[in-house]
């Protein structure tokens, strides 16, 4: 019996492509976030409210990732921002190559912020680097306050937590403080926002923070 030593990361190919994406983003001083959550937590709604808030004050482009349909891209297109829909046809996450292919549809030098909305899934997207500056994880109050403890991997990899559907708290037996406490047990460094896409609560704070991050990148 002989043994060949390999020691290679299985996702090395994806990591290499993510590094290339990151270099490209840096070249264009582009701030890029990867938005992740379970299906139905309100990723697209938070984006819609954010686009409404920014208006023409920030040049935003969106990549939508879904297993099927371009329904989300249609929603975003109403805001007259550049948008590309990636349909994974069953794939449970976006990969760096899919994002790289989508980038050719954009004029990167005319964008300040690129938002990649990942496939709704709290497991698989955690392990695939797309070249983003940070992952933003959204948890809605209707999902159960224990989500961060059940899916710790995603929270380890994220830098920002948005607790969405905060307006529904009186109706769904949720305590946002518990969601936040559970999240911070998994990742004490999380920056946290509370939002409602119905009342617009928290959207200005989230957007202004995002704008400040975008400006930092442009310097």
């Amino acid at each position: 019996m002989s043994v060949l030593t390999i020691e290679r990361k299985v996702l090395e190919k994806n990591d290499d492509l993510a590094r290339r994406n990151r270099e490209l983003f840096a070249k264009h001083a582009l701030f890029v976030i990867n938005v992740v959550s379970s299906p139905g937590s309100g990723k697209t709604s938070v984006l819609e409210q954010s686009l409404k808030y920014f208006g023409t004050s920030l040049r935003v482009a969106i990549i939508e990732g879904d297993v099927q349909t371009d329904l989300d891209a249609q929603r975003i297109a109403k805001f007259n921002v550049p948008v590309v829909q990636i349909v994974t046809n069953g794939g449970c996450h976006l990969e760096a190559k899919l994002v790289n292919d989508a980038l050719s549809s954009f004029d990167l030098s005319n964008i300040d912020l690129l938002v990649i909305e990942n496939v709704g899934n709290l497991v698989c997207p955690a392990n695939y680097d797309l070249g983003e500056a940070m992952k933003v994880v959204i948890v809605s109050t209707t999902e159960g306050d224990d989500k961060p403890l059940k899916y710790p991997g995603m929270f380890h990899h994220s830098s920002v937590l948005i607790v969405n559907k905060i307006d529904l708290v009186p109706y769904v037996n949720s305590d946002p403080e518990v969601i936040k406490k559970n999240s911070l047990q998994i990742n004490p460094a999380l920056k946290i926002f509370e939002t409602s896409c119905t009342t617009n609560k928290g959207i200005p704070e989230w957007c202004e923070w995002l704008r400040s991050q975008t400006k930092k990148r442009a310097v």
Binding site: M1, S2, V3, L4, T5, I6, E7, R8, K9, V10, L11, N127, G153, H156
Partner: peptide, 11 residues
């Protein structure tokens, strides 16, 4: 968080 091919055993 590792996902790595460590080595290959050959007969």
């Amino acid at each position: 968080r590792e996902l790595q091919v460590k080595d290959i055993e050959l007969e």
